[in-house]
Amino acid sequence: MIQITNLEKFYRTEEVQTIALNKLSFEVKKGEFVAIMGPSGCGKSTLLNILGLLDDPDGGSFKFNGEEVAGYNERKRSELRKHNVGFVFQSFNLIDELTVFENVELPLIYTGVKPAERVKRVEEVLEKMQIMHRRNHFPQQLSGGQQQRVAVARAVVNNPKLILADEPTGNLDSTNGNEVMDLLIDLNEAGTTIIMVTHSEHDAKYSHRIIRMLDGQKVTENILI
């Protein structure tokens, strides 16, 4: 599903150029659950942003479902992203001014789903995430765990082929963290490909494969199952 070859990304300031990704190559197959680990600054999040089509690589190749997407413009990336990718962030990133229901509904609005269908699908996913009773609450009225459930619900409501999770349990206690990981496992078992960036060895063990990075390069790859 994802094939990156010699992927490069640089960050430039006035004085120095930092290499965030250094000729990185790997592949993720459809239905896989891959964890990416490494110390801070090793390029994990940069990689995730490129994989999520939020950012553009400076060199190398990035094929998504066999299609070369490196060099796509903003409009094309956004089009591909909204139909194929769901994000789960460490800090949840819900819109404070929208209710739980409205937050989850948002991706469906952007993909042009009809209102009646939207209600049905949002309710389904909220039921699944066991957060239906909070549908009219605003994010700040929810606990961290509940907020992350909403974020996961929002990530999956469009049935994306790929979920990118950036430290999804980083702001949660262990109980809530485990619950979120269970949700991701369920989604993966239902066929969704998941790539998760994490610092937590515990969380990484839920995945099929762990890619470890250092200074923008892959250093090891452990296959768990």
């Binding site: 999520g52 939020l54 903003e74 409009r75 956004s78 089009e79 992203r81 909204k82 139909h83 769901g86 994000f87 990133n93 819900l94 819109i95 404070d96 001014e97 948002l106 991706p107 952007y110 993909t111 929002r154 469009n158």
Partner: peptide, 16 residues
């Protein structure tokens, strides 16, 4: 800014 980032990540383009 956060709202803009979220909206972009879930598929909004700049025009929207």
């Amino acid at each position: 800014a956060t709202e803009v980032g979220i909206r972009k990540s879930i598929g909004s383009n700049r025009g929207q």
